[in-house]
Design a binder for these strands. Sequence first.
DNA 1: CGGCTTATACTCAATATGAGCATAAATCTT
DNA 2: AAGATTTATGCTCATATTGAGTATAAGCCG
Lengths: 300, 300
Amino acid sequence: MTTQIMIELIAVLTAARDDSPLVMTIDHGRSLPSGPLESTHRSLQAGVRAWVERQTGHPIGHVEQLYTFADHDRTLAMPQGRMIAISYLALTRSHAGETGWRNWYDYFPWENYKAEEGRTCRALIEHKLQQWVAGMENPATRMRQKQRCASLFAIGNLSAWNDELVLQRYELLYEAGLVVEAGCPLEHAVPGLAMYHDHRRILATGMARLRAKIRYRPVVFELMPEEFTLLQLQRMVESLSGIHIHKQNFRRLIMQQQLIEETGAMEERTGGRPARLFRFCGEVRQARQITGTKVPLALP
Amino acid sequence: MTTQIMIELIAVLTAARDDSPLVMTIDHGRSLPSGPLESTHRSLQAGVRAWVERQTGHPIGHVEQLYTFADHDRTLAMPQGRMIAISYLALTRSHAGETGWRNWYDYFPWENYKAEEGRTCRALIEHKLQQWVAGMENPATRMRQKQRCASLFAIGNLSAWNDELVLQRYELLYEAGLVVEAGCPLEHAVPGLAMYHDHRRILATGMARLRAKIRYRPVVFELMPEEFTLLQLQRMVESLSGIHIHKQNFRRLIMQQQLIEETGAMEERTGGRPARLFRFCGEVRQARQITGTKVPLALP
DNA sequence: CGGCTTATACTCAATATGAGCATAAATCTT
DNA sequence: AAGATTTATGCTCATATTGAGTATAAGCCG
């Protein structure tokens, strides 16, 4: 009765450097690190932890499950059995000298909303989506898809950009046949590196989860160094979410939550007035896991 | 290399009747409906849909993945292989005459915050947790656990009740040895029906997910009848979240979001002044999946 | 020294939220 | 039938939160 089943663990391992969110890859950036569940692994999470640490040599701060797939794509590769993929989001701090780290926005340039590069990319996408929609026969479908494009990519001034919809936007582009993974030739595809299988989709899932999570859980600190300035923290949130934050309001919101405490030391190399250094409050860590965190990232 | 692996699909199927949130069970309420992934299932979600509909005879409105486990517990049951459980949250509207539906709060009486029954149950829990904490040797651990109990069960007036922490509260009770599943004899356990395996834990996961989700996605409507009054909608939200909502503010928030439209008809059997009937706006359905919904359920 | 950069404190208006008052329109009680 | 009770619905008001901007401080650099 039981068919041959293989369990694959896939990790979206994220770190950050110089205000750039990074993802660990293999195959020259074409795959996410992944490996089979082994019988020595005591649990799924232990399995992910085990080989991510084996790969990077560093402990992982935070691991959470993303999604479990049993795609047709995967099943076709082993017709007599079934392939189940369980994906995880993992965060780590240190990554010195390791290879395989790639910028998120190499794969999703349009998601870097605040950057000039992102703007031009979205302009191109808007154009291509318009063509896609225009080619539809059924007027009702056309209308609905036009609406969908508009709200996902903030086209027109009716809808605002929502940074959490990374997956939905990727899926739209996939359906529109504008990504290489959907069989689109490279020269017609939208900018951004493709990946093997559905790994880019999984990366999108991880990015979306992290963007959502930093709004209400203090996970950003898993990516920050031990001591940091408020601007560094803000830049981190901005780079993850891809959107710009009002500096003074960011400070206000962070300070009033008592998530961080002064170290007493100052950062001198700011290029301007020296900044106070802070550290994440370990004591409230447990409590805040429960209570939650706020960050001034408004949703429409 | 591949060991014998069995995939089990488990569903937290939820409906509602008379302002009571219900969950579908089997084994006289001791198990959640679950079945093996079959080779005829085209995908995991299709598998869940297939046999939930086979069981209830009704279409499911909303299905989403909860979590994938590979618990020791489960693995011990089949030592030569591995058992993976993939759990889902499913919502359905109609359930007339079917057996197997149980009230959520039969399993988690303490989660019914607004009810008198919940209050007394929490008072008992508070007492038992106090004993548990008092028996700890290490003062630092005792302090931390005391703090944990306080914030999870809103003990003292420092922390407010957070309805989303269903799973965390169950896990605390499990660690404290106050539930039957943890090996506690029935007479010492906290009130509430136990389930086989970790099914009550999975139910807690589903409840938590739904409580979180109704805050920002219009999923409540999956549980509502086609036409409803504002009070019925409010009662539904209240019963799911377990907490009380200010009536006028609820109306204000719902109305200003244009999620629902008047049908023109009135509900006469209100026991007071007749109420306008509303329906969920199908047109904005798609858009709201993206934009989100608000409900006046404040978090601390 | 003046010009540039970043840090930090504070103000102000617009909005959102929590709580309550008041009135309307039914049913139930006596 | 009048009054009590119940639910529906409209509106006010104080407070909290948020978005945006001004002002000043304290380093750098030429």
